[in-house]
Design a protein around this nucleic acid. Structure first.
Lengths: 180, 180
DNA sequence: CCCGTATTGCTGAATTTTCAACTACATACC
DNA sequence: GGTATGTAGTTGAAAATTCAGCAATACGGG
């Protein structure tokens, strides 16, 4: 199972990467909090909605976009609804579905918060990287993301133990866990 | 203050990076949980301690290494102590200091968890990147981390409002907030 | 139409993290 | 010695996130 360790370079790179991403995200979170009193999570939800057609998205889609699990998104949206920034709208066709829709107040919040945040992203990252480094960063991100892809965090949600580990039932056992 | 937006490439890269890091860390967290019933945070604390001389570190140093704020580390160590994996030891010279020290049980936990985890890191990242990409990843991480550097999260902790924003007192106003 | 299974989203409790304040010790200066 | 200020670490409550399970709906096949 094991045996394939990391060599020194890899070890250093990994640690460095861990530290960098944390410092970065922590800093962004702090900035966002100070400037706009928003958490990164909420900011992202609002932003995604603001970009979506009709300023609204299916919960599952939104969850996938933000890389949240369903539960987390539900709770978060609860909060945003309480705040008056988001509204829940039943979706037409699918009786199970809910649409999260950005309110005007919510839109205002995004518009107010975005410029600072983006400026910070620019300052903390893009301004410091050469075009080449930016290009490779994009490559790497693409590669890493593609390798994982469990958009709505299926394996994490409530599949009864049996479904996940049971002696592979006839046919493709579970839901689209393998597919993408 | 604003005005400097992100161009399309940058925008794409940023989104891609966000998604990649989240998918990655989520996946690692899940693996760690499944294989060893550990959170990434706890795993990291234990690992750092296991590598430290005497299997122990000052709380502040450990916090800086893990990029935790002091409070978070305190609570986390509480938990690890309850679990019997870490012990708190007063440090000799400085009467305020505490040393977090890994117990034998804690060491055993690390040893059991590490191989799987490292294998996953290898599979999810290093195996998929070319040497060149790895090199650039290291560069980028270095650059980004260096730009931020607020190791023990000073600005976040409990400085009374006055200290932080007040009309700069005579001499260097606060603690080493500016220095590094 | 009915059944079994998949999907969507939510809920409540447990755990973790954040936030603000506080205690105790150290240090520098008079 | 006494005072002012900085530093290390903790604490308790609030907020966020995870975890496990549930209810309602959709969908495919008999």
């Amino acid at each position: 199972m094991d045996g394939r360790w990391l060599n020194d370079d890899e070890q250093r790179t990994w640690r460095s990467f861990l530290m960098a991403t944390r410092l970065l995200f922590d800093q962004l979170e702090r900035d966002l909090k100070e400037e706009s009193d928003l958490s990164f999570a909420y900011y992202e939800i609002l932003t995604r909605l603001s970009e979506a057609p009709g300023r609204s998205m299916r919960m599952a889609t939104l969850a996938a976009a933000c890389v949240f699990d369903r539960s987390r998104l539900s709770h978060a949206v609860d909060r945003l609804v309480r705040e008056g920034w988001v509204r829940r709208v039943p979706v037409g066709q699918d009786g199970r579905g809910q649409l999260a829709e950005l309110t005007d107040d919510g839109m205002a919040v995004v518009r107010r918060a975005a410029p600072h945040h983006i400026e910070r992203v620019r300052t903390l990252i893009f301004d410091r990287l050469t075009p080449d480094q930016q290009r490779v960063l994009a490559e790497i991100s693409e590669i890493v993301a593609t390798g994982i892809t469990d958009p709505i965090r299926l394996t994490r949600m409530g599949w009864p133990e049996a479904e996940l580990s049971g002696p592979a039932a006839p046919g493709p056992p579970g839901p689209a866990r393998t597919a993408r």
